[in-house]
Design a protein around this nucleic acid. Sequence first.
DNA 1: AAATAAGGCAACCGCCTGTCA
DNA 2: ATGACAGGCGGTTGCCTTATT
Length: 254
Amino acid sequence: MGRSPCCEKAHTNKGAWTKEEDERLIAYIKEHGEGCWRSLPKAAGLLRCGKSCRLRWINYLRPDLKRGNFTQEEDELIIKLHSLLGNKWSLIAARLPGRTDNEIKNYWNTHIRRKLMSRGIDPATHRPLRESQKNSAIPCVKGDHKAEEIVGVEGNKTGNGGNEEAPTWWWPEEEEEEHKQWRCPDLNLEFCMNPPSPQQQQVFDEVPVKRGALFNLCFSCRLGVKKSSECNCGSGGILGISSGVLDYRSLHTK
DNA sequence: AAATAAGGCAACCGCCTGTCA
DNA sequence: ATGACAGGCGGTTGCCTTATT
């Protein structure tokens, strides 16, 4: 037997939200806060599925949302993060204050994908299209490259399927043979994590990480060690992976 | 001006995961 | 240990708007 539906579909509205529904949802959340999405619709007098309410709030009604076009900096950050995380839109969104996973996903599919394709870069692998077709592996990273250096999109390496532009991290032709030797012989997924530098620590403490909120986490929580006895911030690692484990600023590949 | 195509985005669907009894 | 449940996520759909013919 399958799971029961999250709501009684026969008596729920679907499709676009009306202004009145929005106002009801905002008013309810302002008074009672987020959470208990299943019971929220009834309590708020909405004929909507709880999931639908959650989505509407998170993607559209939250007061901390940044509306409007993506900036060049945001563009580049999305590309960088996507090259590291893949389609983990929620993780990517966690690093772009005021942006939602859905918004970033849509933006990726409609703008960035095309932009990368026009540059001859495979948006799935972040490799030149010709290479991606030959070898559909995830891009390998040259030993000491930091994540920030991996996915620059400017540059003009030729031989990428006729397109002049290619990532700056792509090696010059004279090194091509050398790199063919070791490029993705095995996919090395071994990561090392370093404690944040004082500068990184400051960034961690200042940059809104998730949903515009500020988090002050101890080191064990940033490592995603849930309920660690070392935890001295009291959060118990509630943010897990999004808080530090995969933070691209402290993540290096070997 | 009307018809059609393409683009953009909000919303839905179904699966996965973590939590709790 | 197990199952139910809520929340969260990524993929997909469908509608609305804009551009083109």
